[in-house]
Write a protein that binds this DNA or RNA. Structure first.
Lengths: 348, 348
DNA sequence: TTGTATGCGTTATCAC
DNA sequence: GTGATAACGCATACAA
């Protein structure tokens, strides 16, 4: 920068002025400076700028698991929003190494990140973490909320989505339903459960009659769920499985394939998320679409608003994006005559 | 830090010394400093440190598309390696906004990133970009290489993987094969093509007899490929499709489903990557597994080696990880009697 | 409108 | 062993 000033015969401040037009400067001089910048191939040193301004034009993104396409899409949305504002995104995928709350707080402070987009994973400790984080700097949450602690957040309308898909399943005639849920601490798990239950209640089915498996959102956990819920092949076996995400529904598919159960003839399956594969499974997975990329995008924008002081930080600001029921082949009316028991009857 | 020094009754240099043990310091004083750090909750200012040391403990990751699970896994690997060395990863997903070569160069320089892991996408301009980048700082490539310009890179053994899967298909009896390729500029496309051709040559099938569609690695492109390659239902219609990645194979599945073609009865399909969904499709997709996470991990480690001067930067250092053929249901012997023409014959 | 001077929080080079 | 002190590259209050 010194060189630039010299090359343009101006002082350092003048250069600084034109670079951030933070001060008035004559046309001629400005041109000279710009020229010098180009000629010398000058690139401002962001580290110095940060040190001086305390702001980094950089946000952090905490995401549990990039191999889950839903999360990956949220990440893309965040990146995209950041990019459109020339901000950087530093990626934190805690899955690999175990990071402590302290780690993130230090990250936020020591790197002088402007803020954090926080997409809580499956584990616990989210509350403490969020608390500590929000204290250390601006934080907005995506896809999840934490009860009792209101940071701004953008979520999808899980509850209504869950209600819709459950109603769809019920309206097909299913009455023996089981739920493959997510980690109990999560707001989304709770919301979707609530949505399911609303629908169930509408059909006068008491919660006690609805088995509930607690999964962890991963495929393998869906397989375990199916193994447990579909094990007994008696008349009590559920005819439909409501899964709180597509990955676990895929796990159910896997189990069914291995167990020789047909979808949807033997059991109907419903998912949540509408990740790409949902449409490619056979049969296609009936699910609820969440606008993943959009959620990430909005979340980042919200964060920038908070950072720029356009929103009150401690406001209980929550953006709820609409979900959409996607009907495909994995849900059909139940076929009682395909159940083992009746089959025996026929055989007799 | 000043506060810490004061609280511990030592000078700033002493504090600095204990914090990076970059100098000898008495036990008592060291203890006092550490204590003060804890009490005051001191967090070093990384911006200042960077300014001073010119090193950021931060690398950049350029990745084309996070919604492709293969890329997402590579990203996870990179993140994981970085995390284990307490380094940060800034994410760049160029898909969203169009970034110029210049942008990345400036990124590398102005943010004083220590280096870049570069995973080229589908588009062109990779050569110029890589050139400019490598000039601006340490760069290692993952999954791809650029001919004529040797930066260190870690790749999977695409060629041998492609040969294996093609041989598998051929050994099932297929002779009318078509290829769903990737962007022609990419090294992987070329390698896989070469692998296919080696196998084909082994079975005395001239390249001219093998239709070749140029895709872009995205699912939709696979659908188009299938539409084109499988359009004519005559005796010339290929009985097997070799796809250079799973996403496009999924596109083929989609086309087949909509066109009423059965897999593998009417057409066998082979993929590449072995992303999660490959095993969940019906029938399972026969494909070649690439160690995606491992590739990212190794790439980041290689980058750190280069940064730390443990490897010659301009060395043609390339790490080739093994691939593995995964046989599932999407490839079976051809069923000539299922072809339309013979069917007519039978009907007559 | 433009230049000068100071400080941001660290590290590193010296003397002590 | 330890402590002053000078950069690092930039932004800005203030003087000119």
């Amino acid at each position: 920068m010194k060189d630039v000033a010299q090359h343009a015969n101006v002082s350092l401040s003048t250069v600084s002025y034109v670079l951030n037009d933070s001060g008035p400067v004559g046309k001629a001089r400005r041109a000279r400076v710009l020229d010098a910048v180009r000629v010398l191939g000058y690139t401002p040193n962001e580290s110095a700028r940060r040190l001086r301004t305390k702001s980094a034009a950089t946000i952090g993104l905490i995401v549990p698991d990039l191999s889950n396409q839903f999360f990956a899409l949220v990440a893309e949305g965040v990146e995209s929003a950041a990019a459109s504002r020339d901000a950087l995104v530093v990626l934190c995928a805690p899955e690999a190494i175990d990071r402590t709350t302290e780690y993130y707080v230090r990250l936020l402070r020591s790197q002088s990140l402007d803020g954090l987009v926080y997409l809580p994973g499956g584990d616990g400790m989210t509350l403490n973490l969020a608390l500590a984080l929000a204290e250390a700097g601006p934080v907005v949450m995506v896809d999840e909320r934490i009860r009792g602690f209101d940071v701004p957040s953008v979520v999808a309308d899980s509850r209504s989505g869950a209600r819709q898909i459950a109603e769809h399943v019920l309206s097909q005639g299913h009455r023996r339903i089981a739920i493959v849920g997510g980690p109990e601490a999560l707001w989304t798990s709770e919301q979707r459960l609530a949505g399911y239950r609303e629908a169930l209640a509408g059909f006068r089915i008491p919660p006690k009659d609805v088995p509930h498996f607690v999964g962890d959102h991963r495929e393998e956990s869906g397989t375990r769920a199916a193994a447990q819920l579909l094990a007994e092949s008696g008349a009590d076996r559920p005819t439909a499985l409501l899964c709180v995400n597509d990955l676990m529904a895929m796990g159910v598919y896997r189990y069914c394939r291995e167990a020789g159960l047909r979808i949807p003839e033997d059991v109907s399956v419903a998912g949540f998320d509408d990740i790409t594969v949902a449409g490619l499974l056979s049969p296609g997975l009936t699910t609820v679409r969440q606008p993943a990329r959009e959620m990430g995008f909005q979340a980042a924008n919200l964060l920038f608003d908070v950072i720029d002081g356009r929103e009150a930080t401690d406001d209980e600001m929550v953006l709820t994006l609409p979900t959409e029921l996607i009907r495909r082949g994995s849900v059909s009316p139940p076929h009682p005559d395909d159940d083992e028991a009746p089959v025996q009857g026929i055989g007799a």
